[in-house]
Design a protein around this nucleic acid. Sequence first.
DNA 1: ACAAAAGTGTTGCCCTTACACCCATGC
DNA 2: GCATGGGTGTAAGGGCAACACTTTTGT
Lengths: 246, 246
Amino acid sequence: MTFRGRVRYHKEAMPENASASSANAYPKPSVTVDIVLFTFTEEALRVLLIQRRREPFAGHWALPGGFVDENEPLEAAAARELYEETGVQGIYLEQLYTFGDPGRDPRGWVITVAYFGIISADQARQVRAGDDAGHAAWFNVYNLPPLAFDHERIIRYALQRLRYKLEYTGLGFLLLPESFTLSQLQAVYEIVLQEKLDKRNFRKKILSMNILEETGRLRYGDHRPAKLYRFTARAIELEKARRRFP
Amino acid sequence: MTFRGRVRYHKEAMPENASASSANAYPKPSVTVDIVLFTFTEEALRVLLIQRRREPFAGHWALPGGFVDENEPLEAAAARELYEETGVQGIYLEQLYTFGDPGRDPRGWVITVAYFGIISADQARQVRAGDDAGHAAWFNVYNLPPLAFDHERIIRYALQRLRYKLEYTGLGFLLLPESFTLSQLQAVYEIVLQEKLDKRNFRKKILSMNILEETGRLRYGDHRPAKLYRFTARAIELEKARRRFP
DNA sequence: ACAAAAGTGTTGCCCTTACACCCATGC
DNA sequence: GCATGGGTGTAAGGGCAACACTTTTGT
């Protein structure tokens, strides 16, 4: 019942290595991971960048990342690089896209597997620059310095992914501190999605998801105090179930 | 206004290559592309597989694919490999995921960038096996032979992506021949999504998208003839606009 | 007392779903 | 003439968008 195309086509443009049995006989690229880590502090959506100390692009800001080790799963490499360069551990990470265009790295043939991460404002405050990496800093996504390599493109892509994620999930709270007000959460959505939202509809929707609970505490500030919320364990479970893997 | 974490953390577990300035000084993986190409023929959703002639996994079925060339964009490598191994050209391709787990290839450290493609039943019929590749054949996704490497996992992931795509777009017609009946199209959705759909609701929805037009012809078969449709240029434009790109 | 943010319900509309019968052809 | 898939409309319910005023605090 299976259709089978058995007919050979004449030999043309068939490179020697297309079906090489030895994986070691042909030129190989370097492979890196880069991590686009988002958080939300000081009223802005921010990305973590590191100032490069070495060429190429010494002095430029760049995404945290580095070379993948042999026998290391890609996601482990991303987690490791992030830890080494910033001290950050145990955060939400997912694979974003793999960039391999010729010329993206002046050192030669370098393919990078980009990861996408979200970190709470609490954890973001603990970021430290690692030894070799130079400064680490959080930059407003909408106001970036000149970046090394094709990292601006990678961040733009990650921002799209973040928007898409917030559009159909309630994961915005992952960017905030452990407890937060609904107005703060709404600000996250408005700034990420770049559109104004209706206060009543926003609250109705977010609360109907059953992923938030009141802490019982209030945030006192300039005006009327606001209820503080935290997200429930269920919120994380729900998202893990939704996650498409692989 | 930007928060900056400047404090160094003490040196530990900092591998030499984490910030190497030469990309050539450290072990490199081989990098391949693999293509999961779907079509819909003989009442089934099918994937294109190629029977391997060489070790490892000689005789096993595997996804079309092969090594990326230096100075070759990844998507170009996917298109080239597909062309070389099957003669197929000019089809819908998008990056799926990058698999790099240790042990996924017995030859050593091999990372693969998987692509996802859709081909019309018309084009699918022209598939030919390339010189080095052995047979090419279309297999029912729900009834696969034992596969080489981690290709079964890759196909499962691609199937999820296909489901997701059909859930929120009208792209099912890309799997069918140039002209098709609405019942055929509904069968595509039912088999991909693995659920029964309501005939009237399905037609209403698909037609309200304004991506199909009547050809004016009928398909004569066992019973009452059915109107044949084709998709409009607008359908393709719409999808390109939606495509999230990097 | 006033300025500023927090908090709270209702209504209309649209989109989705559920559901059953006649029609045109081949045999 | 009968078996088979092709083709069609309507009504109810749920979710989403639009919309304005009162409450509570700090100053």
